[in-house]
Write a protein that binds this DNA or RNA. Structure first.
Lengths: 349, 349
DNA sequence: CTGAAAGCGCTTACAG
DNA sequence: CTGAAAGCGCTTACAG
C-alpha cells in the first residue's frame, strides 16, 4: 500500500521555503510569518506529511520511548498496571517499549543494555507485589526509573504500589458499618509485606473502634483458594465465635465461601466475607458475589508513568501509595432485590 | 551514570581502521582479514561499544520493532499472549512497542498513524476472544499484520487463536476416561464462537463414544461465576440425572462447584466438574481444585510472533489453532493422598 | 581486503 | 522572518 513517504523537504519545496523553516513551523515553534506558516501547514496537510520518527529520534537523541519491564512469568496483576502506564504515556506522545524478564541480575543486565541501546527516555519497572523487593537498576541507567507494583531495594528510588493499609482500613470499616464485631482474618504469608500492611490497616481501624480480632488472631498461609478452604474448615471446627472473615485476597475468600456454605453457614447473615483484588472484574466477568477491595492497579501504572514524565527530580524518592476502593458485593450486603434476573437461554442442540 | 557513549568511529580510530570496516566486522559480515577482525572486536569489547540503535534504524529504515495492539479494557487473558509474543520477538532481537486501544475505527486510525511514523516492521493485534471479529488494519499498513486471541474480519488475514474444538475434545475424553456417561454442559453466550467451538468438540468426542449430552442439552448463559451458581441450582431442581458437568470456563465451574457442594453433592464422586482457562494458575495461585483445560495463551502469542517473523508470505491466511492441554484437578480426580499437607502458620498478633 | 564518500530525514545554532 | 550548513552515528554501494 505504501507510496514512497512524503519527506519534510518535499513539503518545503512545494511550499517554496527551506527545510529549516518548514521544520520550525511543523514543530510549532519560532518566529514565522503567518502567511508562510499557513502555506507550509497547508502543504503538509495536503500531502499528509508524517514526519519520519526514526530520523527525528536520531537527530534529537531522544527516542520518545519509555521502557517498561515486567516479570516473565505472567502474573495477571501486572496487566492493569501495564495498561495504565501505557495509557498515561500515550497521552504524552510517549511510546511504550515492553520487555519481560526474569528478575535475576543477569537477565536484568541484558535488558538494561537493550534499553540503553534504544535510548529510552525513562523506565518503569513493574513488579509482582511486595513479597520481595525489586532489584534496583537505576544506577545502571542515566534516565529516570520508577518502580510500580513493588518496592525497589534502594531507598533512593521511587516506588508506587497500592495502599495496603488502606485496604485493611476499608475492609474493617465496612465490616464495622454492617455491624460485625467478631472478625477474623485469613491471609497470605507473613513474609509478604502486602499481607502485613493489610493486617496493620485492619488492626488500626478495629482498634479505633475498640474492637479486637476474634479467635486466634491472624491466620497466615498462602494466597490460594485451597488455603481458604482449609482455613475455613479449621474455623468451623473451633468455637465458631465469628461473624465476619476478612480474607487477604479473593482467591482465599472464594475458598472460604465454598467451605462455609457447604457447612450450611449463611452468607452474609451468619458470616460476612470480604476479599481483596476484585478478581472477577479483572477477569471481565464481574459477578458481585464477593465484597472486595479493588487495589486500583491501573492507577498505580498511571501514577508511575506520571512521576516519570512529570518532574522526575521533584518527585520524592520512597514509596508512594495509591488509594484503593471498596466494591460491595453479596457476601456482605446479601442479594439486592431485583438482581440476578434469570435472563439466560436454554438451548437444545 | 553515563559517560558519553562510545561510537563506532571511536572504535575504528582506536583499531586503526575506517568506520566502514569496523561496521562490516561488527555486523558479522564481509571479507575482512582475521587479524583486522580480531583487532576491531577486541577494541569494541574493551570500550564496551554499544551501537546507537537509533542511528542504525535511521540508516537502514528498519526499526527492528514490532507494534503490539491490545484492547484498552484490561482483559487478563491478553497478558499471557502479550508476554508470549514479546518473548518470541525478543529472541529475534525485535522490540515490542505496546499500544492499548479501544477497537473502534477512530482509535485504530490514530494508532495506525503512530505505528507508521515509528516504522514498525510488523504488527500483532491481540484481541479479546471470539465474541466479535477484529477490525482488520492490514490494508492500512505496508508491513505484515497477524491477529491473535481473536479472528480478523478479513479472510485474507492470518489469525491465531486457541483450539476451541480441542478444548471440547479434551474435556469430553477426560470425563469419558473416568467413566462418566451422563454429561451436561454449562457455558457462555451462544453468540460467542469460543463457546460454540467447545460445544462442537464436546459433541464430536461424545458422539464417537456413542454418548449423548445428558438433560436438556447445552445451557448457554454468560461467562460469570453467577451463571454457574444459577445453572447448578436449576440442575439440582431437575431429575439430577448427571454425573459430570463440563463448564465453559473456570468461573462458571467455580459457581457450579460452590452450589453443588452446598447441596451436599460430593465432588467428584457424585459429579465431576471440568472448567476451562486454568485461571488459578494465571493468577499464580494454582490450587488444583478444579480440573481445567489450559488454552495455552503464551503459545498463541509466540505463534503469532513466529508467523510474523518467519515467512509472512509463506504463512497461509486464515485461522490457525493452537493446541491446548488438560490440567487434572480434584474436581475429577479427587484429592491425591499426601496432598494438601497442613503447613500453614498460625500466628498471634 | 580496506577506505572515502554519500546518504538516511530531521533539528538546531547561526548568519543574514 | 528566513535559509545555508553542519551534524546526529550508522550503513552501503563503490572504487581501489
Amino acid at each position: 500500500m505504501s507510496e514512497k513517504p512524503v519527506s519534510l523537504s518535499d513539503v518545503a519545496t512545494l511550499a517554496g521555503v527551506s527545510v529549516s523553516t518548514a521544520s520550525k513551523v511543523l514543530n510549532g515553534g519560532g518566529r514565522v510569518s503567518p502567511e508562510t506558516r499557513k502555506r507550509i501547514e497547508d502543504v503538509a496537510a495536503r500531502l499528509d506529511f508524517r514526519p519520519n520518527a526514526l530520523a527525528r529520534f536520531f537527530a534529537t537523541g531522544k527516542s520518545q520511548t519509555i521502557g517498561v519491564l515486567t516479570s516473565e512469568a505472567p502474573s495477571m496483576f501486572a496487566m492493569p498496571v501495564l495498561l495504565g502506564a501505557q495509557s498515561a504515556l500515550g497521552r504524552r506522545e510517549m511510546a511504550t517499549l515492553l520487555y519481560s524478564v526474569q528478575y535475576d541480575l543477569r537477565a536484568l543486565g541484558d535488558v538494561v543494555r537493550k534499553l540503553r541501546a534504544r535510548q529510552v527516555d525513562g523506565v518503569v519497572v513493574i513488579g509482582d507485589g511486595l513479597e520481595r523487593p525489586l532489584h534496583s537498576i537505576s544506577h545502571s541507567l542515566s534516565v529516570p526509573v520508577v518502580y510500580a507494583l513493588g518496592v525497589s531495594e534502594s531507598p533512593d528510588d521511587l516506588s508506587v504500589t497500592p495502599d495496603g493499609r488502606m485496604v485493611g482500613h476499608l475492609a474493617a470499616q465496612h465490616l464495622l458499618d454492617i455491624g460485625r464485631r467478631r472478625i477474623v482474618h485469613v491471609t497470605g504469608p507473613t513474609t509478604d509485606l502486602a499481607a502485613v500492611d493489610r493486617v496493620r490497616g485492619l488492626n488500626e481501624t478495629l482498634g479505633k473502634a475498640g474492637v479486637g480480632l476474634a479467635g486466634a488472631g491472624v491466620m497466615y498461609g498462602d494466597w490460594s483458594r485451597g488455603w481458604g478452604v482449609r482455613a475455613a474448615s479449621r474455623l468451623l471446627e473451633g468455637d465458631r465465635d465469628f461473624d465476619a472473615i476478612f480474607c487477604g485476597n479473593d482467591q482465599i475468600a472464594t475458598g472460604v465461601h465454598m467451605t462455609l456454605r457447604m457447612a450450611g453457614v449463611r452468607i452474609p447473615d451468619d458470616v460476612a466475607i470480604v476479599g481483596v483484588d476484585n478478581v472477577s472484574s479483572l477477569l471481565r466477568q464481574p459477578d458481585g458475589l464477593i465484597t472486595t477491595v479493588d487495589t486500583n492497579l491501573a492507577a498505580v501504572g498511571e501514577a508511575a508513568a506520571g512521576y516519570l514524565l512529570g518532574a522526575p527530580e521533584a518527585a520524592q524518592p520512597g514509596v508512594h501509595y495509591e488509594p484503593c476502593a471498596l466494591v460491595p458485593g453479596e457476601s456482605t450486603m446479601g442479594t439486592r432485590p431485583g438482581a440476578a434476573a434469570d435472563e439466560e437461554l436454554y438451548l437444545e442442540i
